[in-house]
Design a protein around this nucleic acid. Structure first.
Length: 476
RNA sequence: GGUCCCGUCGUCUAGUGGUUCAGGACAUUUGGUUCUCAUCCAAAAGAUCGCGGGUUCGAAUCCCGCCGGGAUCACCA
């Protein structure tokens, strides 16, 4: 297979949310499966919207998901630098080439005048085309006026690796600005020059670029360079409405998801399955498998909604797949106040019991704190329980006392505890629903917890009996 | 308004003329795993394949029209 070079080219103007990283992931998968390179390029030509921390945030997000780029702003390569603001000389050379060949001209109008043209077109309900306002004798370009591409409008038909054949009429082509009056290139110009210079073979991007593709094709011809293969990614839609996912819809950035206890593996798996499938019924994919199986041909053309329920399910699946030791590593920052102080061996024991119940790592404290610290007694839980509220407090205390007596003579192993509990059902002449619920509440004071024998074994004999005694000492 | 893209269960999708008038996953509901919650297992419900024509012996799959949704028309990327 021919080596594929892809690039992810965000502009450091804000934070990268999960929708954007979707494209980066596909770029990465495509490049890696051919043994090629994935490049990160910072498109920082918009000085007004530039956000200082954004570039680091982007790099951290990619690294956190192991979408590892081979070349980038902080990773030198043969086609650097990888920040557009550091490549200005290059754009100027290409721009001058266009001026020389008569395919670019200085724009003599003020922004206000252009705005006037635009308004006029809007009033007439016509599309705005600058080429209808080409100056008869444009001034010589001195770098202080915007430089416009002189287009040659015509109909285009092209192949898109995802969408198939696309086409657009000459109306889609116009004289767009390639160099701004501040000396920076526009995206429309810079990305084409850079993709060529950096030997990018495949360009993946959102469907918002379909409309401008004819312009790019026109520019490629004027520049006399070959174009890469285009692949249009369907948009990720907001869960509720039919619009593109954005911050407004609570689209978090990747780092936030990680802080909320989602695993990178789950995020990658989820992102990959939005807008891609391999035709089988498989749901769980690890990165290396994705690299092997990914293909542009199997990306559906329609947009997909962001389903956080499915992400949550996937996260639970991935948590269950981890070894307890690995889970412990991931949980380091997620323990509760008391749990984080506990010995590692204890933490591991608790994790083993609690692992299947975790949907996110953030659930850990609620599921584990009562193992490390004596919980606050909360008799209301007994009063509100459907079954237990039928029994008087005196009866409850009697049951607890019998339980304590029995457990005091029990060897502390899960199997032995289990059989003692079974005997207690006969001794107290009650149903599991009653007796076991009561015991469970008195040990954990939590709405739910792992099975009783495991819980008791983990707590230890002394702690178990002590908690039961505390509960029994409260007679209503 | 011009140009362009899309349209299968609530959601993500499989399906490219005939073992599929539709399979899987999430979500939902029910039952089971001698207490709870979760897991796991089993099952149920859920899509006249946007609508209307046409082509064909036969269409979710091909063609046309319509409707709905989306993108774009910046000295933003």
């Amino acid at each position: 297979m021919k080596q594929i070079r892809t690039r992810f080219a965000p502009s450091p103007t804000g934070f990268l949310h999960v929708g954007s990283i979707h494209t980066a992931l596909f770029d990465y998968l495509l490049a890696k499966q051919s043994g090629g390179q994935f490049i990160l390029r910072s498109e920082d030509t918009d000085r007004a919207r530039f956000v200082d921390a954004a570039e680091n945030h982007i790099m951290d997000s990619l690294k956190a998901l192991e979408i590892n780029y081979d070349e980038g702003p902080d990773k030198a390569g043969p086609y650097g630098p990888y920040r557009q603001s550091e490549r200005l000389k290059l754009y100027k050379v290409w721009a001058e080439k266009l001026v020389k060949s008569g395919r670019a001209y200085a724009d003599p109008y003020t922004p206000e005048q252009v705005q006037e043209f635009r308004k006029q077109a809007e009033n007439e309900q016509k599309p705005f085309l600058f080429r209808n306002h080409r100056p008869a004798k444009p001034p010589t370009w001195d770098g202080t006026q915007p430089l416009r591409f002189k287009s040659e409008p015509k109909k285009y038909t092209w192949q898109d690796a995802v969408m198939g054949q696309l086409s657009a009429g000459a109306e889609a082509i116009d004289d767009f600005i390639i160099m701004k009056s501040d000396g920076y290139p526009t995206y429309n110009f810079a990305h084409i020059v850079d993709d060529f210079e950096m030997k990018i073979t495949h360009v993946l991007r959102g469907q918002e670029f379909i409309a401008s593709t004819p312009n790019y094709l026109n520019l490629y011809e004027a520049l006399e360079i070959d174009r890469p293969i285009f692949a249009t990614m369907p948009p990720i839609l907001a869960p509720a409405g039919n619009r593109k996912l954005s911050k407004r819809d609570g689209a978090q950035d990747v780092l936030e998801y990680l802080r909320d206890g989602y695993l990178p593996e789950a995020l990658v798996n989820f992102l990959a399955k939005i807008g891609w499938n391999d035709g089988t019924e498989q749901e769980i994919y690890a990165m290396d498998e994705l690299i092997k199986k990914f293909s542009l041909e199997r990306i559906p053309r329609a947009g997909a909604r962001f389903d956080d329920k499915k992400l949550l399910w996937l996260n639970g699946q991935w948590i269950k797949k981890l070894s307890v030791a690995e889970l412990a590593k991931r949980c380091q920052d997620f323990w509760g106040e008391v749990g984080k102080e506990a010995k590692e061996a204890e933490q591991l024991e608790v994790l083993a019991v609690v692992q299947d119940r975790l949907k996110t790592l953030k659930d850990l404290p609620a599921l584990s704190e009562y193992f490390f610290a004596t919980p606050t007694l909360d008799l209301k839980m007994l009063e509100n329980d459907k079954q237990l509220k039928k029994i008087s407090r005196t009866e409850q205390v009697e049951m607890l006392e019998k339980t304590i007596a029995k457990l005091e003579t029990t060897d502390w192993e899960i199997a032995k505890i289990q059989s003692s509990l079974n005997e207690l059902l006969e001794i107290t002449d009650s149903k599991p629903m009653i007796l076991f619920s009561l015991i469970r509440y008195c040990l954990t004071w939590a709405a739910f917890s792992p099975a009783l024998p495991e819980t008791m074994a983990l707590l230890g004999k002394n702690q178990t009996i002590s908690r039961l005694k505390t509960a029994a000492s409260f007679r209503a």
